[in-house]
């Protein structure tokens, strides 16, 4: 599996550390009523077979956090962009 790091170019998978699902959002509220939202964020996952968007750290390279789009069934990597760029878009 090769990942096209926007800073370093295409690099092998052993340089990267995977954090997991990038589609979950951290709740901002600390109220007890936001329990469900926290439960969703910390524990529950869609765990899709197929297209998946995840946070990946280029820990053995530029040490930037990336958002990678990848297929969990074929291991095909679609794209990798810096987390900052991704956040600026949304």
């Amino acid at each position: 599996m090769l990942i096209p790091c926007p800073h370093c170019g295409t690099r092998p998978v052993e340089e990267f550390t995977f954090l997991g699902d990038a589609t979950v959002t951290r709740p901002t509220s600390l109220e007890p009523s936001s329990m469900d939202a926290w439960m969703d964020y910390v524990y529950l996952r869609d765990n899709p077979r197929g297209d998946y968007t995840e946070y990946v750290h280029h820990s053995g390279g530029c040490r930037a956090w990336l958002v990678v789009k990848r297929n969990t069934d074929t291991h095909e990597v679609d794209s990798a962009v810096a987390t900052k760029t991704m956040k600026a878009k949304t």
Partner: peptide, 8 residues
């Protein structure tokens, strides 16, 4: 270390 259903 990464999510996968690929069995490889």
């Amino acid at each position: 270390g990464y999510n996968s259903y690929a069995r490889r």
